[in-house]
Design a protein around this nucleic acid. Structure first.
Lengths: 152, 152
DNA sequence: CTTAATGCAAAGGCTTTGCAGCTAC
DNA sequence: GTAGCTGCAAAGCCTTTGCATTAAG
């Protein structure tokens, strides 16, 4: 498994460094979505040495490798979620995002077949190479809604 | 119509200034999606005087008023699209986004009923106040795909 | 008149980069 | 050994903000 990981990275011309291992490991046994800064803090609390720049660089590469997935959040730093070392351990899902605090909640849906169909129609119609899609809901979580005095 | 606009803004405690009018007008008779900087340039070419800071502030307010809609683009400045002065002249649609150049293409879909249902389920399940959603496809337009030598 | 909006320049937040020294392979 | 990686600090990019001046209602 570790061997496997190394092999995959080497195949892409990347080295499996201590830092990259640490960043990827930080996601294991965690189910949430983390910013670069949060990963940096998690690792520092473990008394490991890593720079924020390296966290950014590692997140990039691990995302490119398909081990992580980046979630872009309006007016808030990007967050990353663990996908799996085999590229698809975590099932397909979508996101519910709090515009107040940046919290991300995963949810499942059965829209895949419709979306797939739509995707291939769009690729043809607009000559696009589509690499991914998302269905996303945005709003305010209970706490943030209270703070803003929004009626739920 | 102009009167109407002024009234709406005053009701929200906003003044209808020359600059805000100019920014909103820049979207009329245009169908594309523009960054703050692009709007700034469009207005400067017309020999009008406006600062970039004011463009940002105006885009914010006009979006809050519902006249514009902001489209967040990964690793690229936000773009704005015209909705209408009555708040909904432009029909509901979704976006196909080029990760190479930031280009945005609108498309229609008939997913609304499914999405509405999903939204109210999510609001209940997670105690969220959901304010909006999007269905979005990302990838590369013909030109950018060529540059990156992606096979379409 | 009085409150809010503008312009300018400066600062802010997140992210990337240049470069000398250091590791993985 | 040597290509690629790291840490550090500096820079970059988009966006926001403080403040004196100006304009809207």
């Amino acid at each position: 498994m570790r061997k496997d990981l190394k092999m995959k990275m080497n195949l892409q011309g990347y080295k499996l460094t201590q830092q990259r291992k640490m960043v990827l490991d930080a996601f294991k046994n965690r189910t949430d979505h983390y910013t670069a800064w949060e990963i940096y803090e998690i690792l520092r609390k473990k008394r490991t040495n890593i720079s924020l720049a390296t966290v950014y660089r590692s997140l990039d590469i691990l995302t490119e490798m398909g081990f992580l997935n980046r979630v872009d959040i309006p007016e808030s730093p990007s967050r990353y979620e663990f996908v799996g070392e085999d590229g698809s351990a975590k099932g397909h899902h979508h996101h519910l995002i709090c515009l107040g605090c940046g919290k991300v909640i995963d949810f499942e849906s059965d829209l895949m077949p419709v979306i797939q169909k739509l995707q291939s129609e769009l690729e043809k119609k607009y000559n696009f190479v589509i690499t991914n899609h998302h269905i996303r809901f945005e709003g305010y979580c209970e706490d943030c809604a209270k703070k803003l005095k929004l009626k739920s």
